[in-house]
Write a protein that binds this DNA or RNA. Sequence first.
DNA 1: TAATTGATTTACT
DNA 2: GTAAATCAATTAC
Length: 215
Amino acid sequence: MGERFLAREFFDRPADRVAPDLLGRVLVHDTPAGRIAVRLTETEAYGLPGEDPASHTYRGQTPRNSVMFGESGHMYVYFTYGMHFCANLVCLPRGMGSAVLLRAGEIVEGAGLARAAREATRAAGPAPRRIPERDLARGPARLAVALGLGRDHNGLDCCGAGPLRVLAGEAAAPTAIGVGPRTGIANGKETLWRFWIKADPTVSPHRQHMPRRRA
DNA sequence: TAATTGATTTACT
DNA sequence: GTAAATCAATTAC
């Protein structure tokens, strides 16, 4: 018998309800080289146009964020800081514009593939030290690299016949979940939409938004 | 058309 | 602790 996966209706809910419900669940990516799987330990919810100033959809639909306005359960991958990709899962039915950012997790399968992908992105230098197991997917851009996610995965359905799925396992217990402000954003700090598994070493350190100095 | 900024990571002082 | 890397979406002029 095959594995069971989260279905569309799981994602047809507000992002701030889906985000904590994803914690402890396993996202799998079946690549040609093999399966890479991550147990999600940290997520953030991003809300609707005109409502959440931190969301990419705040000012309405654009070519970049159009996946967020599509069917739920699809993956929204965006490019940022000129060098990083971040992966999200779209929430709420078509036309709404909401998603959950996958911020961190524990690699539970395909650690060799994940490590190779992570090491390949580092600048060439003398004797780079081995990346600790806990850091393989500790942070949204690191998670994307470890899972092999990039431009090509933007818009992929994670509830259909593609290579991406979330296993229908048990979520983390509500008592084990921490709640707080989202990381690295300039606006919307008062909304407590960051969720993580308490005491889990793969949760990323919370960073303040750093306004960049002028040149 | 130019300037600015960002749901970040890494390296270095 | 701070700075650099690097590009596309957005905002300013």
